[in-house]
Amino acid sequence: MKKNKIKIHKLRCKSCGICVSFCPKKVLAQDESQRLYVLDPSECIGCNICSQVCPDFAIEVIQENEEN
């Protein structure tokens, strides 16, 4: 089964919300203090849009084959 790992570089992220707005599957969200978090990783389709719209090189999606 395929599993995508969403990696947020916390020290780079500026909480602009662009990736949240562009993710087609609503995988990403921001908390009350605008901090970015992954809402539901199982919904991620690995389209990489979040990484392409991020202005701060702060999010990447690594497509992995789950072992066993």
Binding site: G17, P55, D56
Partner: peptide, 12 residues
Amino acid sequence: PTIWCPGCGNGI
């Protein structure tokens, strides 16, 4: 991180 404001498109 860059000095650019949050959401500035330059980084893209």
